[in-house]
């Protein structure tokens, strides 16, 4: 057997992705409706945001455009989890029904094989919307646009994505131990709504929770400080790429450990 490196997995992923897109388009009505749905979700999200901040031009020293920047940042950083890890939402059903066992029989990484099966194209609308919001607020705040800034931006966007992915993996993996993990997953998913606000507006208790317990402050707040407030970047911001990678690896381990504990149902 040949060794299976990154190149192998990348090729396989592209092929599965292409097939998945093909099959998605074969359900044409479903494809169109879900795309329209995603656009409306984003627009309504933006409108509620806009109504809220029209009344408060600044919160705790955060201007409207800075808030908008955070909002855009969180949208972009949530895209990978939406696009590539959406199958986590179905994990519970696969485990419950015993169908999860089919993933155990292939000679490739179990986590990879499972996640590769679904690519959620709706995330792309969110990505476009997020990038638009980011660019707009970037211009309005008058931030410089240098290669270094762009590099920082990309590194911290990846960081933020990894943390959200880690949260979702860990939350989804709970179904290997408890029957109804939907609430855990839903909780993690709802918490991310708080990610788009600067955590300084929350009470110290929640600040602590969002930093160390459910680290959603790393999804937008800490990383974007590096761009928005270059003079007062806390240590946590600089450490967030490390946290991102570490959290992701931990969540991967939890997920895989859960999968090995899985014994399947009788047939």
């Amino acid at each position: 057997m040949k060794r299976k490196g990154l190149g192998f997995y990348f090729r396989i992923y592209c092929k599965i992705l292409a097939q998945d897109l093909k099959s998605k388009m074969s359900y044409r009505a479903d494809f169109i409706i879900s795309t329209i749905g995603m656009i409306f979700t984003n627009i309504s999200g933006f409108i509620s945001f806009w109504i809220l901040f029209r009344s408060f031009p600044s919160i705790n020293g955060w201007s409207y455009y800075e808030m908008l920047f955070l909002y855009g940042f969180s949208l972009v950083s949530l895209t990978p989890v939406q696009c590539f890890f959406d199958n986590n939402w179905s994990l519970r059903q696969y485990v419950y029904s015993g169908d999860f066992i089919k993933y155990c029989f292939r000679p490739i990484n179990l986590f990879f094989y499972y996640q590769s099966e679904v690519f959620d194209i709706k995330g792309l609308g969110q990505l476009a919307f997020g990038i638009g919001t980011l660019a707009y607020s970037w211009a309005k705040i008058g931030l410089a646009f240098t290669p270094l800034m762009l590099l920082k931006m990309i590194v911290f966007l990846i960081t933020a994505s990894l943390i959200m992915i880690a949260l979702q993996n860990a939350a989804a993996a709970t179904c290997f131990w408890i029957q109804n993990s939907f609430y855990v997953l839903d909780l993690a998913f709802r918490f991310k709504d708080y990610a788009k606000y600067p955590i300084t507006i929350f009470s110290p208790v929640f600040r602590f929770i969002f930093t160390f317990v459910m680290p959603i402050a790393f999804i937008a707040y800490y990383p974007s400080l590096v761009i928005l407030r270059p003079d007062e970047v806390p240590l946590l911001s600089w450490l967030s790429p490390v946290f991102g990678v570490v959290f992701f690896l931990i969540s991967y381990r939890i997920w895989m450990y859960g999968a090995t504990k899985y014994s399947g149902t009788g047939s």
Partner: peptide, 16 residues
């Protein structure tokens, strides 16, 4: 994974 390369499995009515 190495074992999976050497075996094929059809498990009940669950299509793979």
């Amino acid at each position: 994974t190495k074992n999976a390369q050497e075996i094929g499995v059809v498990f009940g009515q669950r299509s793979q």
